[in-house]
Design a protein around this nucleic acid. Structure first.
Lengths: 236, 236
DNA sequence: ACGTATTTAAAACATGTGTTTGAATTGTCA
DNA sequence: TGACAATTCAAACACATGTTTTAAATACGT
């Protein structure tokens, strides 16, 4: 437990090591995940002593908590979900903006890449930090996408079909980042990265809008687009 | 380096500990990933001595390699990509069979769940085992899906638009498994699992077929379904 | 039953981990 | 400058890890 500058007025180098520790930790935690990261590597990268982590953050846990908050704030400030939209934009435009900012947030370079990598690790090895993150960042975003898709499908935002469509859209976005190890081996000529965001956003938006278009016309929630013969082709 | 039964003819208990080790290791590796699992936990679960891993598999590496091969074989044998299809099935039927078997393979219960979890860990922390896996399992599957989507889009299987559509389809499948920690927090009422595979397969197939249907009509590879006004709504 | 090869077992080894300690250093204000 | 708190540092601590060692136990052919 550390008490910092209890009665200081002006601080020359404001938490110099503390900040460098946070930066280095973000880098390493993002690359290796919580468990595989060693405080010694962080300190080496930050040019600090091993004991610095415990002094400034109370331990590896505290440092990770700080990193999560810091990295998320960076990502969402730089790429808000309504990025580049003018007021009165159509639902189609809002969908593309959503997809593009989502991809940018995930694929960001350098310090912007932290968010996507940290999230990927949280999916495999969830931490206490995830609960807060879902409520503060992801749920509002989910609601936002629900509004857009609801309008496109001409159904209430809470509708089951709307929710499923949202998941299909987000699933496409995350795939290119999450499965990069397989994609790059499967298609070595195209390694999706930050420079491909525009292309990907365009494809995902077109694919999804096409699907939504058909689904909007088809008011029945039951199977319709799949031939009825398919029903008995189930697995044994 | 161990030489097993160099000139044995009939073995009473065929590699008893060796097999139990493999089972236990699959369980633990799937749950925790390569790095976070300890050979001691595996041995405890298998009821074997710590040295058994090195004796039978030459070390943690060798055991993991064995697990990967074993788990993949189990999954693909139980849920082949053409699961439940009769000859002469339509492209739509083949797509739904592909999606369903893909989901079943990922969401499987018990020993069938190993595959999905091991793959998820490989995405975050790729191992040498991934290279072989991509060539032996994933590339053939990718080709198979390419054929189906190519026929639906009425374009050659190697076409760029076909490839992108394939990625969109697989992305949807993987999402429900990979992002379960977020989905279950976001929508506590529906935790997608093995029992939801039919529902999910139906949704993903319908969503994708709808998109493909529109894209097939639209022969232009350039932006078309998205209003042209969108072009200048890019980020700053 | 004997002898040999295979397999198991307990202990030790070498290394790496997060954390703590206590002294040295630095910064700040009277 | 000098006292006092904040910070840095090297060393050590306590524990966990993968692997090795060495001896005992077991299986199997003759």
């Amino acid at each position: 437990m550390s008490v910092k500058h209890p009665n200081a007025v002006a601080i020359s180098a404001p938490e110099e090591t503390s900040r460098q520790l946070l930066e280095a930790a973000s880098e390493v935690f993002a690359r290796r995940g919580y468990r595989a990261t060693t405080v010694r590597e962080i300190c080496r990268l930050a040019g600090a002593n091993v004991a610095a982590v415990n002094y400034h953050y109370g331990g590896k846990d505290g440092l990770y908590a700080g990193v999560m908050q810091y990295a998320q704030q960076c990502a969402y400030e730089k790429y808000p979900p309504d990025l580049g939209l003018r007021i009165g934009a159509t639902a189609e435009q809002r969908l593309e903006a959503f997809v593009r900012s989502f991809l940018l947030r995930i694929f960001g370079d350098g310090r912007e890449a932290w968010h996507g990598k940290l999230m990927a690790h949280e999916m495999i090895e969830p931490t206490r930090a995830l609960d807060a993150l879902v409520e503060e960042r992801i749920r509002p975003m989910s609601k936002q996408l629900g509004e857009i898709v609801g309008k496109l499908l001409q159904r209430p935002a809470g509708d089951k079909s709307v929710r499923m469509a949202c998941l299909s859209i987000v699933g496409q976005c995350l795939f290119y980042h999450h499965c990069k190890p397989v994609i790059s081996r499967l298609f070595p000529d195209e390694a999706f990265g930050a420079s491909d965001v525009d292309r990907l956003a365009s494809h995902i938006t077109r694919f999804s809008l096409a699907a939504l278009e058909v689904m909007a016309k088809d008011r029945l929630p039951a199977v319709r687009a799949v031939p009825r013969r398919l029903a008995d082709a189930r697995h044994k």
